[in-house]
């Protein structure tokens, strides 16, 4: 199907934007290591008009933070469009389904399903991990809750099934490279509506990945948002190069090292990357992960020519059924 043609699956604003064929912009907000909602709310207020959705990470790198569910509610209250992330590391299928029902009841309409970083990276290294289900199984579970009105066990959700717009991750920089596209296809088959990729520094490899994606026709079945991370220094780039599943070309590190104003150069690189990605067939948007540098998001969006953000157009809004049954796919 063409994503824009069908009736909408959810009330998600992000779904509308992507469905009307606009180049979408999402950004990441890292919840704090405290019980304060301040930062999340101010970031949401800052981002709500320059992005179409804001990802709330779920204890990223296995560091305990304010929950993604609560943070999503704060974003919602601040006028944003929360995209709640959920990892398989910390909850079993019971807790996950429960949180999904709860999140939906609180007005959250987007859910990104992830494996999650292993706890050995975080600040609770002696934790027992769960991994009851994996990210692909989670995607499928959320899709079936939405479209088939059933829990994972097959039990029916008789009233008010959660209708989440389902996101997933793809990492073009992890191995085995050839299998990455096939695994993306598995995620689409499981029910992913949109994909946010690992941050892209190596445009060449990303383009190769997208070529395979387009060749298999996957860009017609899912919306791909390419990940972008502005770096503040060459040191930050060097660090990211060492993270498993990330690739940073040396030329980029050198360029950054030579720059006089490194933050400015970091923004320049991010803007150039977005402009380049827009030219790559199959890319439907960008996902800006300005880790601990959220203020960079409006600047990048502005300079990359992504503003103003498009409105939801009436005709597509009307096309949305109020309480749609499973849509054709």
């Amino acid at each position: 199907m063409s994503p824009a043609a069908a009736a909408f699956k959810t009330d998600s604003k992000l779904e509308r934007i992507l469905s009307q064929g606009d180049f979408a912009v999402t950004a990441e907000i890292g919840p704090p290591k405290s019980a304060s909602s301040k930062g999340v709310r101010s970031n949401a207020a800052m981002m709500k008009d320059v992005t179409d959705g804001q990802n709330l990470t779920d204890n990223q790198t296995a560091i305990v933070r304010l929950s993604s569910l609560a943070a999503s509610v704060h974003v919602k209250e601040a006028g944003g469009e929360p995209i709640m992330q959920m990892v398989c590391r910390d909850r079993n299928r019971i807790a996950m389904q429960s949180d999904i029902l709860g999140a939906y009841s609180l007005g959250i309409r987007n859910l990104v399903c992830l494996s999650g970083d292993h706890q050995s990276f975080g600040n609770q290294q002696t934790a027992k991990n769960v991994y009851d289900i994996d990210s692909i199984q989670l995607i499928n579970m959320v899709r079936r809750m939405r479209d088939d009105h059933v829990l994972l066990s097959g039990e029916e959700i008789k009233v008010a099934p959660p209708k989440m717009y389902i996101g997933a991750a793809a990492n073009p920089f992890a191995d085995p490279f050839e299998f990455r596209v096939l695994r993306l296809e598995k995620k689409i088959n499981a029910g992913a509506d949109f994909i946010q990729t690992q941050c892209v520094f190596d445009l060449e490899r990303f383009a190769r990945f997208m070529e395979l994606v387009v060749k298999r026709g996957l860009d017609k079945r899912v919306h791909i948002l390419a990940g972008v991370t502005p770096a503040k220094s060459d040191k930050a780039l060097r660090y990211m190069k060492t993270v498993p599943g990330m690739m940073v070309p040396d030329s980029l590190i050198e360029r950054m090292a030579k720059a006089e104003n490194k933050e400015e150069e970091g923004l320049n690189i991010a803007v150039e990357t977005i402009k380049a990605m827009r030219q790559i067939p199959g890319v439907h948007g960008v996902h800006i992960m300005a880790i601990a540098w959220e203020s960079a998001v409006p600047v990048i969006a502005e300079r990359a020519g992504l503003l103003p953000r498009p409105a939801i157009r009436e005709e597509t809004a009307q096309a949305a059924p109020a309480e749609g049954k499973k849509t054709a796919d």
């Binding site: 590391r89 970083d117 292993h118 992890a174 191995d175 599943g245």
Partner: peptide, 18 residues
């Protein structure tokens, strides 16, 4: 390390686990 049944996750790098 994550008992993933539909792997590999995004941390697979040069044949090694993240």
């Amino acid at each position: 390390s994550k008992s993933i049944l539909n792997g590999p996750c995004g941390g697979s790098h040069n044949g090694k686990c993240e």
